[in-house]
Design a protein around this nucleic acid. Structure first.
Lengths: 262, 262
DNA sequence: ACCTGAACACCGTTCAAGT
DNA sequence: ACCTGAACACCGTTCAAGT
């Protein structure tokens, strides 16, 4: 059995935000409800299937009603991405106080973001590719809340300004590369009905293998290439990154632009 | 001045493929011509602006004519991605014979792919996120031609089977993370007209900085965060990866699944 | 035999007319 | 004052009617 990374379900019904201005009538259409419905829809049917009209139908309303709560399809996509990261940011395991040291903190955050990618493989590409709202925001840790707590935590563990920023960027690259590769690999065309159907790995392999004439090296290594080693690679590359960042705390620099300040 | 990475233009008119079956009338609509026009169009106007109808207009035909050469919009996107990587694969600098050793080879390929990302920032997200056609294909080096020469080159330099495959995966993660981060950062909303207009970095910075109340750490590090250190980070992370892969040649393993076979 | 106009079944979004 | 039906300006794609 593949060792799935366990993580508390982000889907669980959340307590309604304690916002006194929300009327709370019988199932009022609200922005969070629209965003949550969109996430559920994409998880089930894929990004390409999400239209304003179909999403509205899911909620029992007409498409135009959605425009009261989100200002358009593009903004809705951004809101989904934000909601996913905000959920993680509120999670106990990634609070700075929960971490033993900065390495532990980075491991917790890394596995938290990985859990998001695995629970929402159809949405994660959006987390990676939607243009950031400001020059200091980078995917996938792309909210001010995240950057703030991330940088503050590193500094509280002895990182200097430049070192913390270098670590933020290096950490983001690492997450982006590994998680995007992972979700790309498991991106099999979705037939909305037979989701339970595991795509018969062996049959898929055989079908694809016929086209390998003329590529002897690939053919010879096909089994190794198709092997799912994502979890191990992720862990291995993460530890390697932590080693690299350790050197950084000891005074080295990654983006090292010493000299421009005079 | 920012040190742009120089690379021969992939856009240059290529000699027509020596395919005797192509009639070569006056400007016949061909698949390569459609694909090339699509790349040019997205570079100029952005992915969201590409429609079959508008692309057809660019070529002086109606939309339906395109379906003779590409079987639909999705296939066109895949064809664009393939074309970009095929161009690079044909380039002198990334031929195995051109490389001094495997490190040199990986550096050449890395900078080649980075050049693609920088020349086609609107298209690179597609390279990263389009679902691969087979389980052994991973972005961004996502063609059998690339995998074949990549793996063969590493093996000719002493990599074992598992080591070569581990290196392929680690290299792809590295490229994906860094290049996607880079193009995401420079993703500024495009007004088709004023492309020459450099978005006045300082003004953009000031405008975005007003919203930093409540995020003192980000505010304090905003300048460092917004600094464009992508080239240095890329080089630094690449060297770090090469060190990691060196250990791998010496017999260590990344995905290390020793034990499941016994 | 080949090409393409008109048409189909959708989109996102707007806005006037309804309550 | 608020909500929404009908409408607008598009999509990707098909297919019959033209040459």
């Amino acid at each position: 059995m593949t060792s799935r990374l366990a993580w508390p379900a982000f889907e669980e019904p959340m307590p309604p935000p304690s916002d006194p201005s929300s009327p709370q009538r019988r199932d009022p259409l609200s922005r969070p409800r629209v965003v949550r419905a969109a996430i559920t829809y994409i998880d089930a049917h894929g990004l390409g299937q999400l239209t304003m009209r179909r999403l509205a139908a899911t909620l029992g309303v007409e498409a135009m009603s959605l425009y009261k709560h989100v200002s358009g399809r593009d903004h809705l996509l951004d809101a989904m991405v934000d909601a996913l990261l905000a959920d993680l940011h509120g999670h106990d395991d990634v609070q700075p106080e929960a971490a033993f040291d900065w390495r532990d903190y980075l491991r917790r955050v890394a596995h938290g973001v990985r859990a998001i990618a695995q629970q929402h493989p159809q949405i994660f590409p959006l987390v990676a590719t939607r243009p950031p709202a400001a020059p200091w925001i980078q995917p996938p840790l792309r909210s001010l809340e995240w950057i703030e707590s991330f940088l503050r935590t590193l500094r509280s563990h002895g990182f200097g300004d430049r070192q913390a920023v270098d670590a933020y960027k290096a950490f983001n690259s690492f997450l982006l590369g590994h998680l995007l590769l992972e979700v790309a690999n498991q991106q099999v065309p979705i037939n909305p009905e037979d989701r339970a159907d595991p795509p018969d790995e062996e049959a898929r392999f055989e079908a694809a293998a016929v086209a390998l004439d003329g590529y002897p090296t690939v053919a010879g290594l096909a089994r190794l290439l198709a092997e799912d080693t994502a979890s191990l690679e992720f862990a291995s590359a993460l530890e390697s990154l932590l080693v690299r960042l350790s050197g950084l705390v000891d005074g080295q620099t990654i983006s090292g632009s010493e000299g421009t300040g005079g």
